[in-house]
Design a protein around this nucleic acid. Sequence first.
DNA 1: CTGAAAGCGCTAACAC
DNA 2: GTGTTAGCGCTTTCAG
Lengths: 351, 351
Amino acid sequence: MPRSTRQARHAAAAAHRPVRLQDIADSLGVSMITVSRALSQPHKVSPALRERIVAAADRMGYVPNHSAQALASARSRTVLVQVPSLSNIVFIDLLESVGRVLQTAGYHMLICNTHYRGAGDWERVRNYLKHKPDGLLLTGSHLAEQAATLASSLALPVVFMMAGLDDPVTQAPELAEFVGFSQVQAGRAMTEHLLAQGHRRIAFVGAQLDVRVLQRHQGYLQAMAQAGAEPLEIMDERPSSMAMGASLLTRLRQRHADCTAVFFCNDDLALGALSQCHALGVRVPHDMAVAGFNDLPAAAFAVPTLTSVHTPRARVGERAAQRLLRLMDGEAPLAQPVHDLGFELRVRASA
Amino acid sequence: MPRSTRQARHAAAAAHRPVRLQDIADSLGVSMITVSRALSQPHKVSPALRERIVAAADRMGYVPNHSAQALASARSRTVLVQVPSLSNIVFIDLLESVGRVLQTAGYHMLICNTHYRGAGDWERVRNYLKHKPDGLLLTGSHLAEQAATLASSLALPVVFMMAGLDDPVTQAPELAEFVGFSQVQAGRAMTEHLLAQGHRRIAFVGAQLDVRVLQRHQGYLQAMAQAGAEPLEIMDERPSSMAMGASLLTRLRQRHADCTAVFFCNDDLALGALSQCHALGVRVPHDMAVAGFNDLPAAAFAVPTLTSVHTPRARVGERAAQRLLRLMDGEAPLAQPVHDLGFELRVRASA
DNA sequence: CTGAAAGCGCTAACAC
DNA sequence: GTGTTAGCGCTTTCAG
């Protein structure tokens, strides 16, 4: 930092130095610790004094110093929440509900966006550990192994969201639980729905091939195999988007002209495809049935309305946060640490 | 905390106590401060020693304690970012780009979701000040006044996002800048476009009436007044959504049957309305022209494609973060502290 | 280039 | 119910 800056900063600080506990204590002629208690453990201070202290703190504009609190108490009241992306509404809903629960409990949320880096995810998460979170909320079981080494050595509770239902995680941390639903079963259920409609030439189209997409794909394969139908797939690693859905639909029509139904790994792709069908004059579902996954708000308003799998994102976040709060409170993990919140097929006009 | 819990925690901590600078120093027979410097100001330590220290830190699994760093250095390397909602993609895009810039610069982001509380927003923000952020990124000028008192007394730099272009903020903090575009002008431009198409009976439909929506409405009113057209409005305080758009469209048709064009305050409403038009057999744009605002990805894929105003959200976040970094670095605010990043009309099929 | 001393603001533990 | 003492892990002086 340049010299002049430091001086300026110092001058400002000197002019308006933040109020500390000691300042309040001095102004009232009591000890600092009493002020501390009055503010954070009110029942330990006599009502009369407590009131005077709270009033003084208010008047003087006291703002606690979180770093000092965390350092002295060895509790940061902070939870590290990892998500692979902010562009996917699934994770936004997760963050929203997690945030609500944690906020109510007086915890703050540190968000780590790993940008779908896959293998590099852990490095990102690691970078946030310096904040000494009291607990971890992770999406995706691919972090389980590393989290295990870390969390068990630090005795840090972890809850995995949207994971652990399909691949019973062997390397999981001791203080861990899992909240989600079975992506495999969900993929399977949708495929079975399409089969039940009489379709045999059913394609699976995936993009942004992360763990969850591959699991849905597995479910698709299982259902197709069981029905003795030949799988038709288009898998593209590039990020998912409506534009991508439109272009994949075109590719699908070229590559598998006889295909009568398509199961997209998410609604963004499906919605883009729906739009492309309209543009190409492909009638949905008459010429081609289209299904998605996640049940975005837009699915029910598409033309035609989109058949999809509704996933309990908000409830996953809520439950995960609630469980983590208990674990951070010292409770032992449940004997059955896997919470299956299920999913629902939403059959609409497109398939 | 129950007694047993505390003991368990303590036992675990004793077993695997986190590595401190002192531990590394001891293992190498140097002083703690040298280790500190080797890790955070490498140029101040001889290359040979530095290398040994870094290796040891790595081997021992050292993780710095952010609270201790912040407390000792009086810099938290944390930025408080306030958004009114996570359900609105506008703010997600903002967070995404802000996050990218800050992460690169080694800052962490503390997200404060104020849930469109309006007047209560400041209380929420206040609650995060205990983390002693080095800077503030706020959305909405309604926080300017309170931020001014606070920030100037704390010498905290602030950048306002999506604000300050319409209502020259008088009470702004000294160390403040503004990044956004004129919502009023944007609302006006869209209305003028509809007027230019020959429409006279143009309605404005708003929901979730926050500052920005009201500003767009102002622009609409200005354009209508200038054209000598009578304004038709439906304003609903409830949260915005596609479902709400559908129901507001119905209400509009009932209340103003002769209306030929409608300007929705955002794309969510407009997309829901488009769907409802389809359901009601209202041909767009023939029977009714429909326009939105924000240019969501879905706008270009709607049927028919949706005319909207494209807003530079990602660029706003990026610029705001960049400017805040400079301010936190001690630079003086620009003489012209208002950054107008403009907007673009995206004329498509619906209007 | 390296080190010693002091202290950031707060809370845990133990008095009284 | 209130106070005293000590220390959390690190960085900032200021010395050499």
